[in-house]
Every structure is written in structure tokens, then in C-alpha cells.
Design a protein around this nucleic acid. Structure first.
Lengths: 346, 346
DNA sequence: TCCGAGCTCTTGAACGATCCAAGCGGAGTG
DNA sequence: CACTCCGCTTGGATCGTTCAAGAGCTCGGA
């Protein structure tokens, strides 16, 4: 078949369905069925075809399959620009988990980039050109134009992150209960005997930041402790954390800090180092994200760990439902983080 | 055209080349040329077609294009499993850079996973199914079966990392001169007045580790200083770095450490903290990779920074050459890192 | 014996783009 | 004026797969 077409060509072109069909003495469709619906074949035929496939080393051509089935088995993931100086390796840990999980579901992850309007273009292009079947959206911060755009466009996507700005949003999402995480961290400190536990979080316009803060205040009030004057809201940088902790130490005299991120917690460690205070012994510190920094810093930073592997599994599951059922009504799933305890909390 | 086929269908199916052609009153080929070879069209025709494209919101279907042209404009990148507890965010920084750079070249990055033999299967599958045009290989450590396999298979790929085990390898690669980096770090310390500079590196079977070590020893010998007893070779973990530095401090009495990685450098910081020594003031420490950890740790870790953006650019350029010229003979490119100086070296 | 059901396999067409070679018109030339 | 040539345009074929429909066979029941 292939040989008759190109008689002089020596180099082996990739075998096609037709080649396998001829080799096995069956039709193309039968080979296709052997690959995609083995149940339809008589056992002996199936074996024959499979042998031919193995012998020729046949692998279906994705482009052709994608064209016919209108599916690429790719999910698009936009990589947000790196934020240097930030301790958030969360994104990357998630990417790893997502890649691993989607492989088992027969999907691959396609990365793309773009900021602002260019990001929308990226989504648009990949979607229109049928390059991907769906998207995974990771940063659903307030008024994120991406999520809004995707929603309006009825583009299939699953979000890692709640639709904070729109509780009626009907798309599937998976998120981690940040409040529960900070609550665990705070309780852990209270159980250790601390009564003055300070909070360093993000600016008020961050839904995620306020959510995490609520876990801290809930834990304190639960024990009848006041939160007044014990909180600070700053940018998510090391120096902000350093300055905020210095001020809090002077004014509120806390014996422990709970932070909205490991980055901020590192800022606290800076302040302690500058004042000759020892983390864990003199002042307790807890962070959020369990980043690499938390793991390798001295003396080891207690941190809230997001179950990113579970998140990835849930995201992929939603993705499968979404693609199997076009009318799929999204639902949300909230996972609970865990606390990784290290010496920084004594 | 499209309407005549599906008269009752209201929902707008994606417009095809034929739809645009009809709308603009030209043939399919003319539309195709308008997209791919605008020069071939008479200016007024071009405008007319482009207007029709814009009006219908036409975007070429990738699957169809891929099928015809036998190219996917995707490059595969295998994500190696995360190593928790390691400070190497290098991989992730590189991924970001690669995604950004390849976008400008019209390529997207396809992630996949798999360890050991499964990794080979991943390559095999993506290659045979024409899912990707080429690969980017990142870990070309000693006897890496992937690189060998790809080479034998004549699969198009560009490596980030030298072919250590085979100097005759004729594939394109880009790497960073680790020895130059450690040499810079060591010189920086010597210039600061240190005369006893210790080395903590990886085990001897690591080419990369030995390369980095050579930069350190070269810098010392250049100044007539002896390296005897000043080096330790261990696993790339924080605790190994801690133990090695403790031993070296006792036996060799160095005033500075140069490490093969930030992970090991963090181990040194642990030892210093345990002994009440202050990094930068009492003992100088330099790491390698300029990871997030180096940036956020107290007091800031001097570290060798790989020019990953440049690496990505070079990799993509090689990729383009490779794909444009099937017989492309690979060449290697060695880039020089820079030194990010922070308080840990005084 | 005949018919229909059920199973297995085959056939022709379609997916949407690009490549190919021929067609067509207009400008340039003898 | 006829002819050639150049450049844009055209229809048809093609990439490799899956879909939809149908053909051949066996088997059981009337």
C-alpha cells in the first residue's frame, strides 16, 4: 500500500492505519476499532490486528485523529509571569501534579503565556484553532478578566480557585480552604500556650488574603482572645513582612506570628535575626504554602500545605466530566490543607 | 457554504477556509495564501480576504493544518518529578523562559511526565504520533538514557546541558559554564580577603558537580592557594550540607564556603546558625542557582545565577534551525553565568 | 425453506487545511 | 495582431483518521 505509492523511498515513513490494515488483511476501520473499540472485534481478529500493529510499530497520527474527532486531548494552562523574590513555588508544584494526573486521564498539558490582553488572545487563539479541548485557570483573583472572558465565551475550563467575585458562577472549580489552614496554624500555636498571636497578611482587596485572615481571627475569638491591634496587611514581599513584624513586635508584643504566605513569614524571620531572637524558641512563626523555602530555611518553617496533588486530581476529574458532558453544570470543591510543623513553632 | 450543509443549525460552528473564501468571493487557496503567503496576493484582494477573515473571526484549524503540513508547532518538554526539600527552582524558571521565548517563535510547549522507562515511552509516543515537532531535554546527566535514545532515534531535540558522556555527540545543545560561575564566586571571596575557601559539592559521579568544583579549585590555585582538605563531596540535600560544613569547620577552619547548589549552601547556614555564627560577618557563604531560597533567606545568599532567559532564547533558536534544516548539524553553546552578591558574603 | 436479528467486517465519505498543476487574464514583444 | 510569459487564481487531490451506512455471514424460529 505504502510501498506501491513510493517505490524508491527507502526510509521508513510512519506506518498508517492502511498499512496495518493491509498487513493484517483487514480494513482500515477494523484496525481503527482494534485501537479504539476492541470489544467490537472477534478475538482472533483482534489478536491478528494487534500483532500487525506491534510489528509495524504503528501509532495513530494525532493530527488526523484530532481533525476527525474535533478533540486534541490537550488542556491549556497559562503560565503567569514569574515573580522573583517570592517564595511561591505553589504554581510550579501544581503544574507538576497536573501534568502527572492528566497523563493518567489521557491528556497532555499545553503551556502558553501572555499577560493582560495578550493573555486573552492566547486563550482565544488556542480555543478557536482547536489546539486545546479546555483550559485550567489558576489565578481567579478579583475581577480576573480571564475567568470572566472564558465564562462569557462558554469556553470549557476548570478553575483552581473560587469565583470570589461571583458566587453564582456556574463553572467547575477546585480550591483549598485557606481559612481552615490558617485556623489550624493558629490553633497549633494556641495549643502551644501562645496567647498573643499576630497576623501578617495581604491588603484588604485580596479575597484570598481576607479568607486566610478569617481563619486566624476565628481561632483567636474561639478562645476568647482579642484580635485588636494584632494584625497587619501589607504587600506580599519579604521586606514588607520584615517591616510589619518589626512594628508589631514593638507595639503589640506578640509571641507568635501567623502569615498569609511563606514570603511574609520569611520577612518575620529577618526581623527576628536582626534582633537576635530565635525562631521557635523566642518567637513562633508560621507561614503558608509550604514552599521550598519553608523546607530548607533554618530552623524549618511551620507552614500550611495545600494538597496540590488532590487539587490536580479533582481538576482533572472535573475536566473529564466537562468534556464528556457538554451541558455539564460546574460544581465547586473545597479541599482542606494540612499543617506541616517545623521547629519555627517550637 | 456551511449554511447549506446544516440548515437548521443555529449555533455558529467555527468558520472554515471555505466559508471565508465564499464570503470574500475568492477560492480557498487564495485565503490560504492570504494567511500564509500574503505576498502572493494583489493588495486589494488581500485586503478583501483579510476583512472577511476578521468579520467571520476565522482562525485556521490546527489539526487540519498539522495533518497536511506534518508539523504541530509544539515542542515537548519532560517534567522531571519534583524533588521536595531541594532548593532548585531552576527547572521552573527555565520552563517559564522557554514558554515565553517559544511563543515568539510560534511554538507552544507541551509538558509530559514519566520516569525511567516510562519517560522513554512518553518521548516515543509523542514523536510517533506526531504530537510534537521536537523535544527540549533538560537533564543530560551522565548516561542519561533519554538523550542516548533520542540521538539513536534521530529525533529532533535540543538539550539544555552538555553531552558530558559523549563529546562527539552531534546534537545542538546549550549549557551554562558552571565552572566559570564557581570561579567567579570563589574569586569574589578571595577578593574580599578570604584565603581559606572551602568547597561543598556533589558526589564524584556527577559531571556537573565536578565541573563546578573545577572552577573553585582553579580560582584557588590561580592565587597559589592549596585545595587540600578543603573540599567535601556529598548528596545534594540540606542535611548533607549541614554535616559537611560542620566537619569542614572543625577540621579545615575555612572562613568561606562555596557550594555546588543553594541547597548545600542552606545546609551551611544551618550549621552557622547552630553555632551562633553570622553568615557574611563570621563566615561567608556562596551558593549556586540563585533560587528563591537564596533571595528570601536571611541575610540573603550570594549565588551564581544561570542566564536562563538567554538559554531559552538559544534553545529556541537551535530548535528553529533544527526544524528548518533536517540535516542540521548541532552545535554547542556555552553561556556564562553571573554572580548575584548578597550579604552572605559580607 | 425463508426471514429477520445479530454480529463482524467493509466501504465511501468527511474532517479542514495545504500542495499541485492547470487555467485564465493582462502585459510585453516581434 | 498573434504569441509568449508572468502572476494570480482555480479545482482537485491529499494528509490519516473516524463516522455512517451497508454487506455478508451465522443462527434460531416460523
Amino acid at each position: 500500500m505504502r510501498g506501491s505509492r513510493t517505490t524508491t523511498r527507502i526510509s521508513v515513513a510512519a506506518p498508517t492505519l492502511a498499512d496495518v490494515a493491509e498487513s493484517a488483511g483487514v480494513s482500515r476501520q477494523t484496525v481503527s476499532n482494534a485501537v479504539n473499540n476492541p470489544d467490537l472485534l472477534r478475538p482472533d481478529t483482534l489478536v491478528r490486528v494487534q500483532e500487525a500493529i506491534a510489528e509495524l510499530g504503528y501509532v495513530p497520527n494525532r493530527a488526523a485523529r484530532n481533525l476527525r474527532t474535533r478533540a486534541s486531548h490537550l488542556v491549556g494552562l497559562r503560565l503567569s509571569p514569574v515573580l522573583e523574590g517570592n517564595a511561591t513555588a505553589v504554581g510550579d508544584r501544581f503544574v507538576h501534579s497536573l501534568v502527572w494526573t492528566s497523563r493518567e486521564a489521557g491528556y497532555h498539558v499545553l503551556l502558553f503565556s501572555g499577560e493582560g490582553p495578550a493573555a486573552i488572545d492566547g486563550y482565544e487563539d488556542l480555543l478557536r484553532s482547536t489546539a486545546v479541548d479546555a483550559f485550567v485557570v489558576t489565578d481567579t483573583y478579583l475581577g480576573n478578566p480571564q475567568a470572566t472572558w472564558l465564562r462569557e465565551r462558554r469556553a470549557p475550563f476548570v478553575a483552581f480557585g473560587r469565583p470570589w467575585d461571583d458566587p453564582d458562577a456556574r463553572h467547575p472549580w477546585v480550591d483549598v480552604d485557606g481559612a481552615a489552614g490558617t485556623e489550624m496554624a493558629t490553633r497549633h500555636l494556641l495549643d502551644k500556650g501562645h496567647t498573643r498571636v499576630a497576623w501578617i497578611g495581604w491588603r484588604k482587596d485580596s479575597f484570598i488574603g481576607e479568607d486566610r485572615r478569617s481563619g486566624w481571627s476565628r481561632a483567636l475569638r474561639e478562645r476568647g482572645l482579642s484580635t485588636t491591634g494584632m494584625a497587619s496587611r501589607v504587600e506580599d514581599t519579604v521586606s514588607s513582612g520584615r517591616e510589619a513584624s518589626a512594628v508589631l513586635l514593638d507595639e503589640a508584643r506578640p509571641s507568635a506570628f501567623v502569615c498569609a504566605s511563606d514570603t511574609l513569614a520569611m520577612g518575620v524571620l529577618h526581623t527576628l535575626a536582626e534582633r537576635g531572637l530565635q525562631p521557635g524558641r523566642d518567637i513562633a512563626v508560621a507561614g503558608f504554602d509550604d514552599s521550598q523555602v519553608a523546607q530548607v530555611v533554618h530552623p524549618g518553617l511551620t507552614s500550611v500545605r495545600q494538597p496540590l496533588e488532590e487539587v490536580a486530581v479533582a481538576v482533572v476529574r472535573s475536566l473529564e466530566d466537562l468534556l464528556a458532558t457538554p451541558s455539564y453544570v460546574g460544581e465547586g470543591l473545597l479541599l482542606t490543607p494540612s499543617l506541616t510543623v517545623r521547629p519555627s513553632t517550637g
